[in-house]
Structures are given as C-alpha cells and as structure tokens.
Computed example of a mutant assay.
Amino acid sequence: MLPLDAEHVLRPVRAGDGVALAKAYSANREHLAPWEPLRPEDFFTTAWQEDDARRCVDDAAAGRSIRFVIESTDGEIRGRVNLNNIVRGAFRSADLGYWVDATQLRRGLASRGVAEVAAYARDELRLHRIQAATLLHNLASQRVLVGTGFERIGLAPRYLRIAGEWQDHLLFQLLLEEPLSVPREHP
C-alpha cells in the first residue's frame, strides 16, 4: 500500500473487492458516464465486480496489467489507477487509465495516484513509457497528465468508443527514464 495523503492509500485490486467496487461504481455512475464506455446493468453488481477483481489479480500475476484502487481510511474505494496492456520486449510500455470519486475531486488524488503508479511502472515493472488518452474536452484529466510529467504526442481520431460514440482523443506519454514529477498534497 502506498499512502496518497492522510486519508487515502493506493493498493492493487484484490479478490474480495467486489462489494466496495460495486458501491463505488454505483455511486459514481453518472459522474463517470461521459468518460467511459457504455456499461451493462450487471457491471454495477457485486457479482460482476468480484469477477472482475479476480480477473485483475490473474492479469497482474500474468504480467498483462496491474490495477490499483484508491482506498480511504473508512475502507471505501474512491478511485482507480490502472496500467493496462503491458507490453514487454522492445516496447516496454503500458496504457494508463484512472478516475476519482466525484466527492474527492480537486484534492490531488488523481495526480498523486498517477505519479505513484508511474514510479511503480518504472521501478517495479521496468517499463520505458506509459501512454494515456483523454477526450478532447477533458481538461481536468489533461491537467493531471501534464502536471505529472506527461507530454502531449498527438490526436487520435475516433480512438475509443466512449459514452456510446467513437470519440477523438488526445494522446500523452511519459518516458520513465526521466525524473518523475510527484505532485504535492493539496491542503
């Protein structure tokens, strides 16, 4: 577990997280809808989330991905930071995704979570780079990326199917050989 502030830690998803994940996704359903793929109704159930938590554990063990939760001291899940599509060999890269609970915005949790996961990718996974994509109008997410050292590398037309539509995304990368920018805790 990695502390993010006095009230939150970052830790890998583990079996048994289904109840807390279902609660977090249900509470943030409206908040996340504009930024995510359309979700089937069963996505918000404990059973679906527990099955997914087990897949996360299996994927981490196989080196395909590692997914983290932002957990508050009361045991509630307040966000996620994921490294997906880990590729080894000459590429040594992964895709980054993240979200923070609507009640926890503008506290620096996303920035600190992204910085910690980037350090993990560099130090533990020995990756060379991380790529992230944001919708063109997701300025808050772009601020998180730039603030943690990512650089914009291009525009990807119709890149991902988000909120039911193929949407353009801005692409960012972080080369992990560079010193990482670790944001300070917000008051």
Rank of each mutant, 00 (worst) to 15 (best):
D5H: 07
H8F: 07
L10S: 06
L10E: 03
P12D: 07
V13H: 06
A24W: 09
Y25Q: 02
R29P: 04
R29A: 10
R29I: 04
R29W: 09
E36Q: 06
L38N: 03
R39H: 12
R39W: 02
R39N: 00
E41C: 03
T45K: 09
T45P: 03
T45I: 02
Q49T: 00
E50S: 04
V57Y: 03
D58N: 14
D58H: 14
D59Q: 14
A61P: 05
A62H: 11
R64W: 14
I66F: 02
E76T: 14
I77F: 10
I77L: 13
R80H: 11
N82I: 13
N82C: 14
I86E: 01
V87G: 10
A90I: 08
A90W: 05
F91L: 13
A94P: 07
Y98E: 02
R107N: 13
G108D: 08
L109M: 12
L109Y: 10
A110T: 04
R112S: 07
E116L: 13
A118I: 04
D123Y: 00
L136T: 13
N138Y: 06
A140H: 13
Q142I: 07
Q142N: 02
R143N: 14
G147P: 10
G147T: 09
T148W: 11
G149D: 11
G149F: 09
G154D: 09
A156Q: 13
P157M: 07
P157L: 09
G164W: 01
L170C: 11
L171E: 15
L171I: 13
L174P: 05
L175Q: 10
E178H: 13
L180Q: 01
S181P: 04
V182P: 01
R184Q: 11
R184A: 15
